[in-house]
Every structure is written in structure tokens, then in C-alpha cells.
Design a protein around this nucleic acid. Structure first.
Lengths: 362, 362
DNA sequence: TTGAAAGCGCTAACAA
DNA sequence: TTGTTAGCGCTTTCAA
């Protein structure tokens, strides 16, 4: 009895050649049918389509990528999806890129330092572009990619001394606005919960906040570090609220930490945010609008930022140089109930939300 | 004056041939250096590595995929990242797959029905496997992929009549447990907030919950549909709480909706969850453990489910047939403070969390 | 262990 | 408009 090898064949998908044979035309005709703007007669075209349908043919994008030097795949590196702000960013990028024919290859970085194993991985895939929305990624990685010819863009993260282009919110302006808002609200003892020292967003936000307070003669705010993590922010808030000179206003480097602060204040210290204590965040993560939080926060214009990032990438793909582009898009100070309101300056925006604008330039 | 075409050259990355030339050996030798288990002498190997380093060479994975018929890319389709349960799932898949050399290509489906444009997209990339963690995806898509030879697995979603394998939590058992828990806690007027009628998870959870209540002679629970959305759940909860026979216990098809219910009860009706009203969810999304929510919920064993899904996919890739595999992994009823406790049955699990187990089989 | 040669599935230049 | 041909960058026989 003969032994028959039964390794599952996983029959291969139909190729362009298969389709060509069945349709009785050349392989090129098949290719042209699937190439935007190529010249095929309707007759041939229909033959191809019919054959393709019976064979369930779909062009192999990897083979195409090999020759066109375009993979239609964009890499997105994020540092972790537990920060309530990022899922929305990922989703937006995914949806907007899908509209223009790109797919997202996801890289979740582990936040650790050291020689980046991500780099090797990233460059093995011939990504059309790379978005670094990860605070923990070394800007060395970004630079390497750029040098390797992959358009890179830093999102919500800036290294102004680098040639790697970036898109961010108006971190400084936003934080000054927050400071002005809190001052106008009559607060006097300020605190800032930072992310990482090295993170540009955290740093810029702190700078805007502190410098405004100093300029107003209110001195530097108290300070604690929450490492951008929920637990970190919990500890930071505790230490702040336990200090003899308890702050009456806490500004957090992002919503994720502000949400933690809110809960510590409420559940551990029995404080009522917006009355006993004001807490303000930065990002406007979707969850911050939930009834239970009603977090006052400076918003990142995610929709526009994502759109802009995609525009830049497409320009870069079209051959335009992007060196040194550092764009900042303005958000708004969304007034909800986690912080005490100033008597003036609160207006209803066209979309119906309450926002605060300073009467004088901050 | 001659016009010089200035289209940016984007110089191509080094190829294996470049490396071979520099190292003074053949292209095959280069390939072997990067192929697990190929035979290369240490001498050649080092030559290759040195040349590769100076040229910054990295194997082109698309070219490799073309010949090996393995892309090392797995597709992950999710219906939306706003459901607090999914970001963790995505992150886990990303991390666990990364450990075994796979990357995730993300597809965010738009929840709509109709002929799926996703299908065409999906099969153009020669994905090594596809995970459907989207409740809104037609099982027709799954079937098509399977027939196209792509290992597909449905995650948190089951079609028992289909050959497409699935991984899910013990939806029925879990829901019966929830029912038993609420009955033991002395509740009498039950309600269920469903997701979609067509969704298997929602359906199974409803079935488990209802059938237990009926069996105990307590009749069918009140019912509302929240479409798995936050706003939908808000409306559902309102209508339930406004009804003349206000329920004293609401079980929601997932945490996402339970979180909405919690807030409606608290902020709109001034009720204190866990005292005036019990609310229980299903999933154990990370956020459910937050101080502000403390949602009692039946957990999905995400870590094990993801690990199992990956195992199955790897088996399938190794040639094993997976037709008709429908695995269910048990979770636990995590007792927090959003629901009134029975007098018995609450125990501390080895990990320190409180869980409830029925004294008799449910 | 090594190199030559073939070919994965596709597109693009060229000629017809 | 169409087919022929070359080749994208790689792996994998096969012989040496």
C-alpha cells in the first residue's frame, strides 16, 4: 500500500495568469483591469471580470507592492491602549486611512527604553509611512526611519530639534489657557501632575501652565509625577491631597491621569470635584464627557489632527519634503463640572458645548 | 537650460544582492543567513552580517511572503474601539502575536450591514490568519475567508452552525451565574439590556439569564435593547427605570452598556447602585474596576482567550483542520459594589479579588 | 557549505 | 488597445 502524503494542500488563490488563461487574454490585460487609469477595452475588461469572478481572483497586494514600491500599509506605533485617549486616535486613523486605500499595521510598544527591537521589525515591512503616536519611542527610531526613506510623522509628540515632522495640539497655549481659567476661577493653590519628564507633551504643558502662573505672580505650582499611568496618577494625587498645603486646583498632563485624580479626590478624600477642588485634564478623551466624570479639559482636535497627519503623509508620498514641519493645532477649553467656573468667559460653542476663552490673550 | 526632473528619488533600501556583492558571496548565502535553520558557515555568516550592517540591509518581508506563502501578518477586525472591552483585546493580541513574530493589520468595521467591502480588502492581503472580533461582521465573510484558505477565527462571537471556529466566554454559564447571584441577593424585579438581537453573545447571555429566572419561577425579565452602544444603553436604562414596575436588578449584555446604566441610575435618577438598585455587566473591561464604577461583572478570561486563539491559529497554520471548533472559556463573577451581595457565596480568589460562586450548580 | 538558476505574482516598458 | 518581456527582492531546489 502506498503512503500518500496528506499534508493539507491549502490550495493557492487564483493568480492573474489563471484568470488570463480562462479569459483567453494576456496577463497584462488582467493587470490593467485592476490598475487605475490603465487602458483596457470594455470587452477585455468584462472578460477579465467574469473570469476573475469564477476563479475568485483578487490581486496579491504583496506582489504588487514589490514592483510598485508601495505597500498601501502604514505603520502605527502606540504606547498602549489603556490611555483612554488613544483608542479613538487609532480608530480615526484606521477609518481615515481606509478611505484613501491604506491599512494600518499596529505596533504596540512596550514603553521601555533600550535598543529598540521595534526598529528592526518596522523596516522589514516596507511601510509606506509610519506614525509614531507613542510617547515612549525614542526619537532615534524616528530618525532612522526617516533616513531609511520611510516618511515618519510624530503624533502628539514633538522633537523640535529633529527633522522628523510632527503634529500636536497647542500644548503651551492650551495649558496657559487652563492656568488663566483656574486663576479666573479664583483658585490660589495650584498643582500639576506630570507624565514623564522626557515626554514633550507633558513638558510643554507644564511649561505653559507654570509660566503663566509665575507671570501672574502666583509662583510655581506643586508638582507630582504620574508617569502617564492610572496608578501613577493615583499616587500622585494622594500625595498632593495629603500635603499640608493642599492644592485647590490640579491640572493633569492628560485626561487619563485626570480621571484617576478625580476618583481619588472623590472616593478616597470625599471631595466634590468642581466644588471643594478643581481638576482639569488635557486631551478630551471620549470618556471624559461621561456623566460620572464631566471632566473640564483642553481638547485635542483629534479629527483635524488625524486628517492633517494623513495629508502630510500623502504629500510626502507624492515626493514633497517634510523636514522640519512641526504643526500645532488649537483645541478648546471644554467647560464641564470638574472645575469651578470663572464668572466670565464661558460661552456656548456652535456645537453646543461650553467652552471658556480668556478675555485677554494668555 | 536643461530642465532636470527633480522627483525625489527615495533611494531604495539595500537588497540581498547588494549585500552579497559587498560581502563577496552569493545572494543565497545572504538569504540563508536570515533563514532559521539554514546551513551557513560562521565565516560567511559574519561576512554577510558585516555587509548588511554597513548597508543597513533588512530582508523585505513582502518579497519573502511571495515565495514562502507566509506574510506573518494577521488581520484583526473589530467593530469599534469605543467599547471599553476591545482596546484591551487588541492590545493583547498585538503583544502576544508580536512574541511569535506576527503583526496585526487592523480593520475597523463600520458596523453596517450590506455586501461587505471589507471582504475584498481582506483577501487582497495574503493574511496568514484573520480574527473576527467584530459583532457586526457577517458570518458570510468568515465563511468566504475560510473557503479562500485563510484560517479564520471568530472571537467573542459564535455561529454554531458554521464551520468557522470560535473562541468565546462561557456566555450561558456566566449569565446563569449572574442570575443566581441576583436571586440569592434577594432581588425580585429583573431586567436585561440586550445588545443586538442578531449578536450571538447578546443572545446567549440573555438566554442564560432568562432561562434561570424562569426555572426559578420568577418569570421573564423586563427587556430593553441598547445596541451595544453607550447612548443606546442610556435610553434603554431610562425607559427601564421610568417604567411603573421599576426593576431592582439590571443585567447588561456587556460592561460598556452597564457603565452607561450605572451613570444613568446615579446621575439622572439619583439612585445608589448596589443599594437602591443592582447593576451587573459582562466582560470585565479594565475600566469597570475603577473606583467610580466598581462594577460587578462576569469576566471574560481575555488573557487565556487570546492565548487560545493564537494557539488555534498556529495549529491551523501548521496544517491542522479547525472546522467546527467552538471553544468556551470560563470566567468569574467578580463581586464589586454595583450590586447588592448575597449573604453567602462570596469568596476571595487567589488573586485577591472577590468572586461569587453558587453553592449549587446553576 | 556554497552558487546558479528558477520562479513566487505582479506591473511596466516597449513593440506591435 | 494588446501581448511580450523583463524584473521587483526574495527563497529554494539542485549540483557542485
Amino acid at each position: 500500500m502506498t503512503r500518500i502524503k496528506t499534508k493539507k494542500p491549502r490550495r493557492r488563490p487564483a493568480t492573474a495568469l489563471d484568470v488570463a488563461r480562462l479569459a483567453g487574454i494576456s496577463r497584462s490585460a488582467v493587470s490593467r483591469t485592476y490598475t487605475e487609469g490603465a487602458s483596457v477595452s470594455p470587452v477585455t475588461r468584462n472578460k477579465v471580470l467574469a473570469a476573475a469572478k469564477t476563479l475568485k481572483y483578487r490581486p496579491n497586494l504583496f506582489a504588487r507592492a514589490l514592483i510598485t514600491q508601495r505597500s498601501n500599509i502604514v505603520g502605527l506605533a502606540v504606547s498602549g491602549l489603556d490611555n483612554q485617549f488613544y483608542p479613538e486616535v487609532v480608530q480615526r486613523f484606521s477609518e481615515e486611512f481606509a478611505k484613501v486605500g491604506y491599512r494600518l499595521l499596529l505596533f504596540v510598544t512596550h514603553g521601555s527604553a533600550g535598543p529598540d527591537p521595534l526598529l528592526d521589525e518596522l523596516l522589514k515591512y516596507r511601510l509606506d509611512a509610519l506614525i509614531l503616536a507613542s510617547s515612549s519611542v525614542s526619537s532615534g527610531l524616528a530618525e532612522s526611519c526617516r533616513q531609511a526613506g520611510v516618511p515618519v510623522i510624530m503624533y502628539n509628540n514633538v522633537n523640535p530639534r529633529s527633522d522628523v515632522p510632527s503634529i500636536a495640539a497647542t500644548n503651551r497655549l492650551g495649558s496657559r489657557t487652563v492656568a488663566a481659567f483656574l486663576v479666573a476661577g479664583g483658585h490660589r493653590r495650584f498643582a500639576y501632575i506630570a507624565g514623564f519628564k522626557a515626554d514633550s507633551s507633558s513638558f510643554e504643558r507644564e511649561r505653559g501652565f507654570s509660566s503663566y502662573l509665575v507671570k501672574q505672580g502666583l509662583g510655581l505650582p506643586a508638582r507630582a509625577e504620574g508617569q502617564f499611568s492610572f496608578d501613577g496618577a493615583i499616587h500622585a494625587t494622594r500625595s498632593l491631597l495629603k500635603s499640608p498645603k493642599r492644592p485647590d486646583a490640579i491640572f493633569c498632563a492628560n485626561d487619563h491621569m485626570a480621571l484617576a485624580a478625580l476618583q481619588v479626590a472623590r472616593c478616597e478624600f470625599g471631595l466634590s470635584p468642581g466644588k471643594d477642588l478643581s481638576i482639569v485634564g488635557f486631551d478630551n478623551a471620549p470618556i471624559s464627557a461621561w456623566p460620572n466624570f464631566q471632566l473640564t479639559t483642553y481638547s485635542q482636535p483629534t479629527e483635524r489632527m488625524v486628517a492633517r497627519a494623513i495629508s502630510l503623509i500623502r504629500e510626502s508620498l507624492a515626493g514633497k519634503a517634510l523636514r522640519g514641519v512641526h504643526e500645532e493645532l488649537p483645541g478648546e477649553l471644554l467647560v464641564r463640572s470638574s472645575a469651578r467656573l470663572p464668572t466670565t468667559g464661558v460661552v456656548r460653542s456652535p456645537t453646543g458645548t461650553l467652552i471658556w476663552t480668556p478675555k485677554t490673550r494668555v
